[in-house]
């Protein structure tokens, strides 16, 4: 598996898109720091971007890599290697290279700006950790979609729909519920609903750590009580881990039965 991982990783590290992605984050980091002139504020702006963008890029890269390397995967399948190792290797290769682009692209400007002297280092690391989680989650989800969809265009469509649903539509439905049922106590409901969406989960997790939760009102207080503590932090990270494990398990099951 490590060998496959290594080659997938090299392959991606050399592709133009990895550099574009890396350069984008690099530029973003510098521009944000230049405009805000404050690490803390830059982290908040960055959160809004990371939370939407990493899932999108993870989804697109996952689907694209699967369909583009289809024939090569077939070559690998004819080698004496266990099937699930091939796909796990590819999956980890994509996720790790994307995470590297993220960490290096944002890390470099922030470190140059003096991140290590700033109090924001914990928040910034949390941001990167969440970004990494989102990468692993969305690559896994998109790999699942690609494995189950023979048609490239359909696969792409489903993957983008999945992203759109989790990043935008889910929140919309969530809001409609909050408005419709606003005469009922909704804190438990909203807490639970957050957990079923990795993007929301990440957003809440970062928001609460950034000490701007006062803006969130009463429900925010419930959230703060829950996620603001270390216990809540671990629960949230645990949930994000489950969000990785479940799609990966399903991927392995699917791979065992699939015809190539």
């Amino acid at each position: 598996m490590l060998k496959i991982l290594k080659y997938s990783f090299y392959d991606l590290m050399r592709s133009r898109w990895s550099y574009v992605y890396f350069m984008f984050y690099l530029l973003l980091g510098f521009v944000l720091l230049f405009l805000n002139n404050d690490v803390d504020k830059a982290v908040i702006t960055l959160m809004n971007i990371i939370i939407v963008l990493t899932p999108l890029i993870g989804t697109i890269f996952g689907v694209m890599y699967y369909y583009n390397s289809k024939e090569f995967t077939e070559l690998l399948l004819a080698q004496p290697i266990n099937r699930s190792k091939i796909f796990m290797g590819q999956y980890l290769g994509i996720s790790i290279s994307l995470t590297l682009s993220l960490v290096l692209g944002l890390g470099i400007p922030f470190v140059l700006y003096g991140l290590f002297q700033s109090a924001a280092i914990f928040n910034f690391s949390l941001l990167l950790v969440v970004g990494a989680f989102l990468n692993f989650i969305f690559v896994a989800l998109s790999y699942n979609i690609a494995l189950s969809t023979e048609n490239k265009i359909k696969g792409f469509g489903y993957a983008i729909l999945m992203w759109l649903f989790l990043a935008v539509i889910y929140d919309g439905i969530f809001l409609i519920f909050l408005v419709l049922f606003n005469s009922y106590p909704l804190d438990k409901f909203s807490l639970a609903a957050t957990m079923f969406n990795p993007i929301d989960l990440s957003r809440i997790l970062i928001l609460l750590k950034l000490d701007i939760s006062a803006l969130l009102g009463y429900t925010g207080a419930v959230f703060k009580q829950f996620f603001g503590t270390n216990f809540g932090l671990f629960i949230a990270l645990g949930l994000l881990t489950i969000w990785i494990i479940l799609p990966v398990l399903r991927m392995n099951l699917k791979v065992k039965k699939k015809d190539f």
Binding site: K3, Y10, D11, R14, S15, L75, L76, A78, Q79
Partner: peptide, 23 residues
Amino acid sequence: PQIANFPPNLSVMELIEMVKNLR
């Protein structure tokens, strides 16, 4: 295989070395 399609960013040598590495 019928259709030869390899990772576009690897060189020929690297691909051969990789397959050797796998077996």
